[in-house]
Computed example of a mutant assay.
Amino acid sequence: MGILLMNDTDEESSHFGCMRVMRSIREALGQRGYGSLPSLLVGTDWKNNAHEKAKIDAAQVLVINGEGTLHHGKRKGLWLLEAGERVRKNGGKVALINALWQQNPKEWAGLASRFDLIYCRDSRSASELSNQSGIDVAWLGDLSMFQSLNIPSQNRKGVTVSCSVNRDVEKRLANFATSTGSSYVPVTPQLKHVSVHTRGLKRTLRKAYVRYIEKRFLAKHPGTRLLKNDIDYLNELCQRELLVTGRFHAVCMAILAGTPFVAIKSNSWKIEALLADIGLNPDRIQSEDALNANLLGKDWSFTERELAAIDASLQLWRADGEIMFDRIADLTN
């Protein structure tokens, strides 16, 4: 086996941001002669799965999509690093890319330091991993923004409210959308997703429960619209004056679409780091207590300076991304 992708977050097309990340990785490597790449899905406990372990043992190059997994010492983050160590000991090469890195054990940095290539997805993560490991760590913005978008010229109107990884914040966002007459459009095609790792009767029962929850939610929040894919979501954003969200990838897609946004803090520094790296107004990040009608009374339009900073950042990250993918392809030689 040549290249193996690990932490494939495009699990049954269940998250629009992850769809874009994995499409960017696959298409960029496909352009370099590596198409139809095998992968291990996000959350795969490969140590207890002989089939997935065999994939890792056969890999010449392991490309780990770090995304939002490597923070606060979470168990599934260690699974990724241990897979990389296994490939390395077998004589293979390892690239960790698109990685958040926040408040992880120092021994994790020791594992990562032996990889052949590391790219974080924000400068704060790169700095923390560099300080822990003693090596220089490169970075570029999240790969959901790697592929360019042609923004149609149209009159924008209305507000879209999106979801959050935090259940309580998500409820407040939905209530905010309903109370202000805004559209509630999650960054997922369903309100809840049943993991592919959930099987048998448990999966059947979980799906039935999700349908029940979704029916109740839609009755309570009739302004909710569930879209099919990332293209539909970006088209939605291109029509709006403002996005209010608690999701990192929703912010990334708002930046792509040129849509002003207000973000509620997430479960790591990922949104704060993204805004700082581009040079956007930090006041765009608000607490959940700001979710009231007064929020919509403010002018959240991008300034000329912010628009220029977005354009410059996206151009730089795409150029750096091409270099990164060239370096990954070179690992196979």
Rank of each mutant, 00 (worst) to 15 (best):
N292F: 09
R26T: 14
L205P: 03
N333E: 12
I213T: 11
D299G: 02
L201R: 09
V196P: 09
R172T: 09
I3M: 09
S195C: 01
N175V: 14
S125M: 14
G134P: 11
I213N: 09
G91W: 03
S113C: 06
V187K: 04
L296Q: 07
K270V: 00
H197T: 15
M6G: 02
L331N: 10
M145I: 03
P189Q: 03
K171Q: 12
T160K: 01
M145V: 06
C238H: 00
S287G: 10
Y233G: 08
K220I: 12
F217M: 12
M6P: 02
T69V: 06
P152H: 01
A126P: 03
L111C: 07
K265Q: 12
C18D: 02
E67C: 02
I64Q: 04
V63F: 02
L143Y: 13
K192R: 13
N104H: 11
K55A: 11
I323F: 10
V196W: 14
Y212V: 11
Y34P: 04
K74A: 11
V196M: 13
K47P: 03
L280A: 05
L205N: 05
R167L: 13
T160H: 02
P282S: 06
E82F: 12
N48P: 03
L80R: 06
A174S: 02
T178E: 15
R86C: 06
E236R: 00
S113D: 09
R156H: 00
S195D: 10
K270C: 03
R225C: 08
I285V: 04
A257V: 04
G84Y: 01
S130G: 12
Q154G: 05
Q315N: 11
P152E: 04
L307E: 10
I64T: 00
T332R: 07
W79S: 08
G33M: 12
F248K: 06
